[in-house]
Design a protein around this nucleic acid. Sequence first.
DNA 1: CATCTTATTGCACACTTGAATAATTCATCT
DNA 2: AGATGAATTATTCAAGTGTGCAATAAGATG
Lengths: 216, 216
Amino acid sequence: MNGIRRPYRRETEDVRREALISAALDLIAVGGIKAATVRAIAEKAGVTSGLIRHYFASKEDLVRESYHWMMQRMTADSADVLKDSECDSITDLAVFVAATLVPPVVDAARLGLWAGFMHEVQHDPLIRQVHIQTYLCYRDVLQSLIGPLPRAVSAEQLRADAIACNGVIDGLWMEACAVPEIFAPGEIQRIGLTSVGAILGVDLLSAHEKSQRPTS
Amino acid sequence: MNGIRRPYRRETEDVRREALISAALDLIAVGGIKAATVRAIAEKAGVTSGLIRHYFASKEDLVRESYHWMMQRMTADSADVLKDSECDSITDLAVFVAATLVPPVVDAARLGLWAGFMHEVQHDPLIRQVHIQTYLCYRDVLQSLIGPLPRAVSAEQLRADAIACNGVIDGLWMEACAVPEIFAPGEIQRIGLTSVGAILGVDLLSAHEKSQRPTS
DNA sequence: CATCTTATTGCACACTTGAATAATTCATCT
DNA sequence: AGATGAATTATTCAAGTGTGCAATAAGATG
């Protein structure tokens, strides 16, 4: 058989793996896990489907690694918000909460991705571990922002506060992603700041407003 | 061909439709949407796969109706908590919040079900409409519980409070379903009561404790 | 009991799926 | 340049997918 084959370039393992992972995540975000077939992934990554099994033990394996990759990126993204902050602890927290409740963190595709994996969290041990690790990591960041606040609380109370704040933020993020049209612009962000502030007994709303305009 | 056919009983349309819907939901809860194949659904419902197309225009159609059915049941369940309450408004709210944050509402299968459909919410117009309707309905119940509280707030504030409380509850519910093992028993419930109370400026925790033991 | 309606089965069909493997072609090394 | 090795393609395969439709038997009606 001598049909003409498509030309190709050889790439490093890292390049190909990342291309396949990105393609898988794109597909899952838009069409759910069922849309991530080997053929669709390969086409989106610009290769043929056979290559998937060359770099991953199975398609399942690729999906698992994709989840890990995505969660790592999300964690890094949220940590970046505070990278070079020179503000007080209240303002840091306000900025952190506010950033989580507007685009690009609020994004239908991101929610689709997150939900697409949620069921695997129940059954795949590795995915479950990644989920827990990412959740705890995010909560720790939150706790490290809550801790320095000018309040006197026990360690137990601090943990409870972090869980609670994480809960509000997650819940609001979800609804904002799912059906943004039923909220006014900026409403969810404002509600998030107010609620977290109420839980912690600090005024996050004005702290956030203050952080917006000192560009003078 | 005259192989012996499996015997069967004729049932009404309602019985069969509900059996098929229940079977579909069971499968989706455990294995995600991809597990809900026509053959698996039919087997679990005790019929053969051809019957699905007799009662539903397509498998997709069955899935859509299943979602609708599930959401209606969830809404009804949460409304039932307050059915014959004779308590004051604070206690009603406390009971409502508390009920959402323990089993059977907190349940991995329920979360799996909910997440399994989340992606369809983005793309299927009917499912999206059902989602919005259910969300607003739940929030209205919440708002009707918040409204009578002994506080003086504007209508706008009331709406914001309801959104915020719904957010906390959703977020905590999610984490409790997903990874219950990282929380102490009753911890999420307590945190939920405290947080919602803090947002609204009322003491839900003691209101709930009070409602537990007046069985004298 | 005979007849009729239709709920239900059983099967075939066309397609898609993930996986396995043979066949190629690119890039590197001497 | 020419050979070597491995990245990549192309093809095949068995299993599973939803759908369409004819055959059948359950149960109501007369």
